[in-house]
Nucleic acid binder design. Structure first.
Lengths: 258, 258
DNA sequence: CCCGACTGATTTGTCAGACAACATTATAAA
DNA sequence: TTTATAATGTTGTCTGACAAATCAGTCGGG
């Protein structure tokens, strides 16, 4: 056991990072158990011979890594459910890149639909139908219905009763938001497209409702294939405007529930 | 005393988090382009009407999220490849949980095999065959061949020529390593299983080599189905030993290359 | 004209101390 | 015993300062 009561961090690298590593190690090895409270910032600073600022930066890293949570007035605690992070580059909004995302989405949603057909609870089926109705409603009002569309697909993922699907789909859908918007705002083709989309959605829901997994998977696969086709129909100039619409829109993407 | 020159952060939440969100938004929307230098900490503090400490905490979050890098004496810069993180709880090693992972893996690999059949380059096909040979070799020597097996599946993902697949598959495979090991170390059934596995792998590679996408997808689907079945055959006591083997390993996840 | 060393200003990293906001615990009152 | 109140502890934020590294410009010599 390494009793580093006074371990002067080796010079060269960032102090905060070294401390963060030591704390991370302590958590990973189970030396500090989930739910346990960390020593106070003052204590840690004294122990490592550093100022409170550095301790705070180090803890900030752990917080960001999902390893601890801090409560003002109380202390910092090892997270109950330690997490790992998949970090990847933000996809550029080119057509090629968006299509790559659609391919992944297809992989996930086809299987999600299949699982949903096997496992959906009655309430999940109800939510699916509500989500579909929401799309109609939004379109009738004149909105693009993109948010409602994404909620619909999220409902399918939820009905699969496999949290991994919802996590990954949610993660990637952020980057598809603008692409879908472009397809929807393609004025000339909009009505035709919307009719198609609604029809395809209906097929998926019907299959899930009947518990026909192969039909559900097929319907989902067709839907995503057609989605790619519809995207390709969008004029190039619309696609290029992706970035502009992105910067002008107040996308509160980080507004996740607590 | 607080002179809110620009946007007064709404009270209630952490100041640093609010600022971090604004900056994150600016980067995500491309308002600040990769490589560009951020305003100095002092400037940002003045602009948002907050102290430098808070600015530093906010920037620290961005740094941890991989969105910016800081150079002492120079400034903070938007990372050349801005990243986003998918964070999720570390799956427990229960049979139920592992099967959930296999479901996701099936979704991904079926589609990856389909894409690989369409797009694999000759060199990728060669690598696939080498990976398959490596498995045989490892098994003949007496090793479990788990690492080689995972490399094989990674080669399929790479042959899909869609980086999203490799990223997600890599990410989740970490948690499947032990589960696969368990299946392989099931002494009584090992030989039968390995023969099956090799046969199934061969079917996938053949389909990919011939460019038959439907056959490749089917073969991959069958392989993953059988994998789940094989896992279920493993005695319960073996599955329970998963946790021990898992906790004894030094997971150095923070050691990413620079 | 070009180039290198030097100087000074700028900027992030760290330190130190203080107060505010909130949480927890101990204490007193009913 | 239960409830209000005070005291204490802890994180969040503010302020000011210095160290260390970078950067821009100046100057002198080739």
């Amino acid at each position: 056991m390494i009793t580093n009561h006074e371990t002067p961090p080796t010079r060269g690298v960032q102090l905060s990072e070294q401390v963060a590593r030591q704390l991370t190690h302590a958590i990973h090895t189970g030396e500090m158990r989930p739910g346990e409270r960390l020593p106070t910032e003052a204590t840690l600073g004294e122990r490592y011979g550093i100022s409170r600022s550095v301790v705070r930066e180090a803890i900030s890293m752990l917080r960001n890594a999902g390893l601890v949570t801090s409560r003002r007035g109380s202390g910092s605690y090892v997270a109950e459910v330690p997490t790992v992070a998949l970090r990847l580059a933000i996809p550029d909004p080119s057509l090629q890149s968006v299509i790559r995302l659609l391919e992944l989405r297809r992989a996930l949603e086809v299987e999600a639909a299949r699982l949903a057909a096997q496992r959906r609870t009655p309430s999940q089926l109800r939510r699916l139908r509500n989500a579909m109705a929401d799309i109609d409603e939004a379109v009738e009002v004149g909105a693009d219905g993109v948010d409602q569309d994404m909620a619909f697909h999220r409902a399918i993922a939820e009905a699969s009763n496999n949290t991994h699907f919802t996590a990954v789909i949610d993660f990637y859908n952020r980057f598809l938001h603008h692409a879908i918007t472009v397809t929807r705002t393609n004025e000339s083709l909009r009505e035709t497209f919307m009719a198609q989309v609604i029809e395809e959605h209906q097929a998926i829901v019907d299959a899930i409702a009947q518990g026909d997994e192969d039909a559900a998977a097929q319907a989902a696969g067709r839907h995503l294939e057609h989605a790619e086709w519809r995207l390709r129909q969008a004029p190039v100039d619309l696609l290029e405007r992706l970035e502009d619409t992105a910067s002008s829109e107040p996308t509160n993407d980080t507004g996740d529930a607590r």
